[in-house]
Design a protein around this nucleic acid. Structure first.
Length: 213
DNA sequence: ATCCCGAGGG
DNA sequence: CCCTCTGGAT
């Protein structure tokens, strides 16, 4: 995909989904951070379900530390990797208290220094909670970038760099949400619905289909 | 069987 | 680059 084609594709996604941000379950720094940490290798539905009870018991870092690893674990056993995630959420909350006055930092370096927080999570928090023009490459965006040729690459870093080069700067931040929704509902991992995709013509995905199976 | 809005470590 | 952690959904 050329840069002009990328702009057309992204513009179409924006028009198809003008209110993409409303799809987000959490947009404030702390609950968003915790929710994204929990979302690694888990479906968003399972995370959203588990976090209802978790945030009712522990809506802030101090309450989360008080709840403890076992307390957190009880809430998130319905999602995968719960052992490591429970420890990370408590440790991360403790670090917010001692190093950041109980608040979520708004720099990439500080975020990535937190346990369980990597590049993708840091970028989501910066993009959504702090309104910065970062591009978080999750599994959906990685897949879209590679299939369409919008940002081909074998690593998330390459895809991220490709997106930054091809997507106009003023579209970068909201494009994050449009792309994720496109990946969830159209450019799906299992059975992509290519006949609904605006990038169908320029896409180089070998199995693209022109009509429902 | 395969995948999911990854991170950390080898 | 590779692997492991892990349960639920399809």
């Amino acid at each position: 995909m050329t840069r002009a084609q990328a702009r057309a594709f992204i513009t179409h996604l924006a028009e198809a989904n003008p209110d993409a941000r409303s799809e987000l379950t959490y947009t404030d720094p702390y609950t968003l951070l915790v929710a994204v940490v929990l979302s690694a290798q888990a479906t968003d539905a399972s995370v959203n379900k588990a976090t209802v009870g978790l945030f009712r018991d522990a809506p802030d870092p101090a309450a989360m530390v008080a709840l403890g690893v076992d307390g957190v674990a009880r809430h998130i056993r319905t999602i995968g990797l719960w052992r490591a995630k429970a420890a990370n959420v408590v440790a991360l909350s403790a670090q917010l208290l001692v190093r950041h006055d109980g608040r979520v930092p708004d720099t990439r370096e500080a975020l990535e220094a937190l346990p369980g927080v990597g590049r993708k999570t840091a970028n989501v928090v910066l993009n959504v909670a702090f309104d910065q023009s970062t591009m978080a490459v999750d599994t959906h965006i990685f897949r879209i970038g590679n299939r369409t040729g919008l940002a081909p690459g074998s690593t998330t870093r390459q895809v991220e760099d490709g997106l930054v080069r091809r997507i106009p700067a003023d579209m970068l931040r909201p494009a994050h949400h449009w792309l994720i929704l496109h990946g969830r509902y159209v450019c799906k991992a299992r059975s992509p619905e290519c006949w609904r995709c605006a990038g169908r013509e320029e896409c180089r995905f070998p199995d693209k289909r022109a009509s429902p199976a």
